[in-house]
């Protein structure tokens, strides 16, 4: 009996050794194939993303000037200069103010418009198109239109104010209002994009949850929103907030066209600072240092988004 058992075991053992060897070969072969298959994507990522990023970071430690034949490593000098520069801090503060106004504004308006369109009976695609128009239009061209609208003498905005018996204002020429005017344009531009994302989110909320809410006693629109819509929009909202924040950090076009950071740096923002330093004063090294600060904020937002996405958001 026991002999038979050992014999059986022996038989079972015998083919196992070569099997493991084969498996080892196979594993090595598979990992080679895996690397080969991943290589194109990895190369692209290296060339398009990681390479330039490393380049910018490296550049920020040099005194390189655009077009200069040589450069030298100067360590943290750029950063030291930057943190001592009043303009940088104004620029950072303005950017953060811009983000703090545009993100809640564009998210709330986008959600509101999406809810209105979703609950409306007709003309849905008409409204969708109208609100999406600012997203599709070239922002530079639209900025010029805004420039006309905000013109102190002939602008539509002041015209309307005067017609309503109110005092007009030099919106873009006043230190107190220039940044906020840009915020309004930013909200106007981002709302349509957020609306489309929210609409997609709203469509995917199962209808029966609203039925259940109705049966359970959520009678008002507000309590249905609190019980069903808002929690179910969690993932979309998180995405919209992150995208809006990153896009707001990148604000440049309107500043470049309308205010050039003025008057007296009151609408100076990070990317505009980077642009003037890097491409007007040709101080590429210093511009790279500003860019690194900008990238740090974007990275922070991304990390925040994925951390929250794993914890607080409910995927149905």
């Amino acid at each position: 009996m026991s002999d038979a058992a050992t014999a059986l075991q022996g038989m079972a053992m015998a083919p196992r050794v070569p099997a493991r060897v084969f498996a080892g070969f196979r594993r090595a072969g598979r990992s080679q194939a895996a690397y080969a298959l991943a290589a194109p994507a990895f190369m692209l990522m290296l060339l398009m993303l990681i390479g330039p990023l490393a380049g910018v970071i490296a550049l920020s430690f040099t005194d390189y000037q655009l077009g200069a034949p040589a450069f030298s490593w100067i360590g943290l000098s750029n950063y030291r200069e930057m943190f001592a520069d009043r303009v940088f801090w104004i620029s950072l503060k303005n950017t953060l103010t811009y983000v703090a106004i545009v993100v809640p504004g564009a998210v709330a308006l986008g959600l509101g418009v999406a809810l209105l369109i979703q609950s409306g009976a007709g003309l849905k695609s008409w409204y969708r198109t109208v609100y999406f128009l600012p997203v599709m239009a070239t922002l530079i061209a639209m900025a010029i239109v805004w420039e006309f609208m905000l013109h102190p003498q002939f602008g539509l905005v002041n015209g309307l104010l005067r017609a309503a018996g109110l005092q007009g204002h030099s919106w873009l020429q006043d230190r107190g209002t220039a940044l906020y005017s840009l915020c309004v344009i930013g909200i106007w531009q981002a709302t349509g994009f957020n609306m489309v994302l929210f609409l997609a989110g709203l469509v995917s909320i199962p209808k029966h949850l609203y039925d259940a809410a109705e049966i359970d006693g959520a009678e008002g629109a507000w309590s249905r929103f609190r019980l069903v819509t808002w929690p179910m929009l969690g993932p979309v909202t998180l995405f919209v907030v992150a995208i809006s924040a990153i896009r707001s950090f990148q604000v440049f076009d309107t500043v470049q066209v309308l205010t050039k950071g003025g008057p007296s740096k009151s609408s100076e923002v990070l990317i505009y600072t980077m642009y003037t330093e890097g491409f007007e004063f040709f101080r590429s090294g210093y511009g790279a240092a500003v860019t690194v600060v900008f990238l740090a904020f974007v990275l922070l937002l991304t990390v925040l988004k994925s951390a929250l996405g794993n914890r607080e958001v409910h995927y149905a």
């Binding site: 199962p206 259940a212 929690p231 179910m232």
Partner: peptide
């Protein structure tokens, strides 16, 4: 309901 219609976040 057929699909239970439970609130997934609660």
């Amino acid at each position: 309901f057929q699909s239970y219609a439970l609130y997934p976040h609660l």
